[in-house]
């Protein structure tokens, strides 16, 4: 029993540390500028105001939320499919150059994106994709090394003989992937979906560099414009961030249902 209490105490303390900074975001989003100056960040302003949220929602911000949602949906769809394909091949198919190619994928994560951004931007110019949706999506929609690495590891951890019977039944690789392996990968797919959605939603530097118009503006960039060279609209930035977080929490709760023990795998002896 005391063990149980200790467990909950540890969880509660950890949760508090986790959430506390974000609590400051929420409190600040609900303060007037005057309350911001007169109260410490960790105390609420009284009475709380929804003016900041209303101001953000009343301007162009909802449009940028839609842009971001569209970008996120497309990137997630593309990445889930192509990442899974590639990871499957790297983990469970044998072909020439497999290891070299895989580590080449991983190696592309080892050079800072701030510097590769310049050549990438020039490539996009050559492809005539600057300031277009295609340019915004192209580098990431075909799957990312990070996601492929993640899924490869999960595919590898599945028992090695799974495909065999299906092969004997004459199933092709695609059938095996869809019918045999993927049902066992729900936790991994759930995780991949979560990280893809959230990292797309929060992506900042590439959208900022490749596009500059309002038609493709995403929320992170819109929030950043509230921080001027000289002053910061804290309460508006925090309100924007609060609006941005809400759908992500919903997405997380939806997908984390899948991070549970796969029935099939447990049934396996």
């Amino acid at each position: 029993m005391t063990k149980r209490i200790l467990l909950y105490a540890a969880l509660a303390a950890g949760a508090l540390i986790s959430v506390f900074p974000y609590l400051l975001v929420v409190l600040t989003a609900l303060k007037t500028q005057a309350q911001l100056s007169s109260t410490p960040p960790w105390l609420p302003g009284w009475p709380p105001t929804t003016d900041n949220l209303a101001k953000m929602l009343g301007g162009d911000f909802p449009r940028y939320v839609l842009n971001t949602a569209l970008m996120t949906a497309l990137l997630t769809a593309g990445q889930l499919v192509f990442t899974t394909f590639a990871a499957y091949a790297f983990a469970r198919l044998r072909f020439k150059g497999r290891e070299i190619l895989f580590w080449l994928y991983v190696a592309t994560m080892m050079v800072p994106s701030a510097v590769t951004m310049i050549p990438l931007f020039l490539i996009m110019r050559e492809l005539d994709l600057v300031n277009t949706w295609y340019g915004l999506l192209a580098p990431y929609i075909l799957g990312t090394p990070y996601g492929i690495f993640l899924m490869r590891q999960f595919f590898k951890s599945l028992p090695s003989g799974l495909e065999e019977a299906a092969r004997i039944d004459g199933a092709g690789s695609m059938t095996i992937l869809l019918r045999v392996l993927l049902p066992l990968c729900r936790p991994a797919l759930g995780t991949l979906a979560i990280i893809t959605v959230i990292s797309s939603w929060n992506s900042f530097l590439w959208p900022l560099i490749i596009t500059s118009g309002d038609d493709t503006r995403v929320i992170t960039v819109a929030i950043a414009t509230l921080k001027d060279g000289i002053g910061v609209d804290y309460h508006l930035m925090m309100a924007g961030s609060l609006i941005a977080l809400a759908p992500m929490v919903a997405v997380f709760i939806f997908f984390q249902k899948h991070i549970v023990r796969s029935v099939v795998l447990t049934g396996l002896k």
Partner: peptide, 19 residues
Amino acid sequence: YRSLFVIPWMATPIVLGLI
């Protein structure tokens, strides 16, 4: 609890720097 622990990573990074 799981959701709470992931919030630090879900929140907009530029805002968290200020916080």
